[in-house]
Write a protein that binds this DNA or RNA. Sequence first.
DNA 1: CTGAAAGCGCTTACAG
DNA 2: CTGAAAGCGCTTACAG
Lengths: 324, 324
Amino acid sequence: LNKKVTIKDIAEKAGVGISTVSRALNGYAIMKEDTRERILQISREMNYVPNAAARMLVTRGTATTTIALLIPVVAHQFFFEIISNIQSYLKTQDIHLMVFNTDRGHESVIHHIIGMHMAGVLVLGDPPLLPSEERLLELHRIPLLYVDRHDDNCNYITFDNTYGGQLAAQYFIKKECKKVLMMGITDRTTQQTERFSGFRVEIAKHSPHIQVNELCINQERESYEISKTVLNDKSLDGIFYFTDFMGFGGIQAKLETSSKVLLVGYDDIFPSKFMKLTTVRQSTKVLGHEAAKGMASMVIDPNFANIKNGFQKILDPELVIRQN
Amino acid sequence: LNKKVTIKDIAEKAGVGISTVSRALNGYAIMKEDTRERILQISREMNYVPNAAARMLVTRGTATTTIALLIPVVAHQFFFEIISNIQSYLKTQDIHLMVFNTDRGHESVIHHIIGMHMAGVLVLGDPPLLPSEERLLELHRIPLLYVDRHDDNCNYITFDNTYGGQLAAQYFIKKECKKVLMMGITDRTTQQTERFSGFRVEIAKHSPHIQVNELCINQERESYEISKTVLNDKSLDGIFYFTDFMGFGGIQAKLETSSKVLLVGYDDIFPSKFMKLTTVRQSTKVLGHEAAKGMASMVIDPNFANIKNGFQKILDPELVIRQN
DNA sequence: CTGAAAGCGCTTACAG
DNA sequence: CTGAAAGCGCTTACAG
C-alpha cells in the first residue's frame, strides 16, 4: 500500500525491461514512439515519481541544480530583500535554492551541502565559513561566493563601504553641518568600521573644522532612546547612522523633539522611502541579481580554475536624498 | 584527483571491511573503541563526506528532515516575516528548510519534493496546489500545510479575516466616522472579500448610518496617488486599507493634504510601527511559529491518520492603535 | 566485535 | 529499438 512505485513496477505492468522504462521517462533516448507513450501513460496512472536519491547516486548529482544559501541567525530586512532578488534570478535559470539559517559552526550544514551534491554555496553577511569548511568545499569543487562581505582570498560581491561613508560625509559637508555624530553598534563589524572611517577621512580632508564624534550602542533597537538623549545637545546638527533601521529610531526622536538635525542612514531598505530617510543606498536588487548571476555562471562554467577567488566584485552605493 | 572518497577507500586504508567503517561513522553500533577512533581519524584525514544520495537510497530518507516551503512569485514583506519565523522554529527542531519560489504549475516542484523524500510541504498564501498535486503528496504520505490560507479539506493555519474586518469597523465606529472608504485590489482574493464583508456587516449591525464605499485599484503601489485624489472629498473621514502597504501610501497622501482622515491598515508589518499606522495586526511571529510547530508535529508523529486535514487553526488578529 | 553479501532505485554502456 | 547486467555508495541483517 505505502510502497512507492518504481520503474520495475512500471516495467512489469508494461511488459518491458526496466531500461526501456528509464529511457521512456527520460525523454531523450531514441525509441519506438508508441512504446514510450504507453509507458508514460502507465507511469502516470501509477502515480510514479522518480526517486531522486537513486538518480543522484548514479548521475552524481547532475539531475537538479540546487544552490545553498546560508543566512545569519538574525536576518534583517536588508537580507530578505537580497534573498528575494537572488531567488528571482535563480528561478529564471531553473536553479533551486535551499536556505539554511545557521548559527554556531556551519560544519554539519557544509557536510549536508556536499553530501547532497549541491552546486554552489552563497554565504550572506557574517560570519564567514571556517577555513576548514572553505577547504572542504574547494576539495569538492563546489563554488563559494560571499555576498555582502569582503575577503580577498575568496569569491565575493559586496558594496564599497568606505565610499558609502564618503558619500554620507559629503552630504553633511554640503549642508554645512558643524557637529555630527556617527551612531553605530558596539559589536563592530568590518562594515561599520569602513563606513565610519570613510566618513571621517572625507570630513578631515575637506572640512576638518567639522566636529565628528562616534557613539556605539548595544542594540539597533535602542537607537530611538539614545537618539532622543543625544538630541538634548542642541549644537548637534547631524547624525550618521550605521543602518537605516537605526535611522528610523532617529526620525522618531527627531519628530518628537522637533529637532532640525540632519539624519542620514545606510541601506535604503523597504520602509526608508516611506520614512523619508536620506540614506546611502545599497541596491538589494543589483546585489542579489549580480550575486545570483555570478553563482550561476560559476556553476555552469566547466572551467573551475577561478573557483576560489576568480569572482570579486565591489559595487558602488549611492546617496538618496529625502526630506524628513 | 577529483574522485570523491568513499567508505571503501577508508576501509582499504584502515584495513577493515566497509561495514565496519559504516558502523564507526554512524556512531551508535557497538564496536571496539580503538578501531572506531582509528577509522574516524582516517576519514577525517581523507576529508570524507558521506554521500547523502546513497544513504537516502537505502534509509529511504530518514537521514535529514527537510521541509519544503513554497512561496508566491511576488512575496511581500508579510511573507518574509513569516518565513523568518518559520525558520527560527524549525532550526530548534533540527529541520532544514528548502524554499521554492514558484509560479505557473508547481508540478515539477512537487515531483522534486517527493523524489527528494522531503518530510513535509508548507504552502504560503496563494495559489493553492492543484488537486492532482495534493493527491500525489497524500499518496506519498507527505503532510501538507497551507499557511495564511483557508481550505476545509486540508490542513491549514490562517487568521480570521472576517473578525479582522470587524475590528477595523469597530474602530471607525468608536471614532464616530460618518463616511468611510474600503480600498482594495481589483483582483480580489478571498482574504480581501472576507475582511471587507466583516467590515460591512459590523457597520450595518451597529452603525447603519455610516456610509461605506468600496474602491478597488489595480496595484498596491497606486495607493498613494488614488488616496490623494480620494481625499479631495472632504466629507470622507475614514479609509480602511486592505493592506498596510497600501496604508503607507495613504499616510503620505494624508500628510501632504493635511487631511484629518482616519486611516487603518491591515497586517502590521515591520514599517507600520514607524509609520504610526493604526492597523489590524496579524502576528507573523505567532503564525510562523505555529505553522512550523504544526508541521514539525505532523512530520514527527508516526500516526498519519490526520495527515490531510487534521490540523486546522484559525488565529485572531488584533487591533493596534497608533497616532498618525 | 567484524566481514561478505544483498539490496535500495536508477542509468548506461554492451550486446543483441 | 530493447533487455540483461553492472555499478553508483551506503546500510543492515546474516554469519561467523
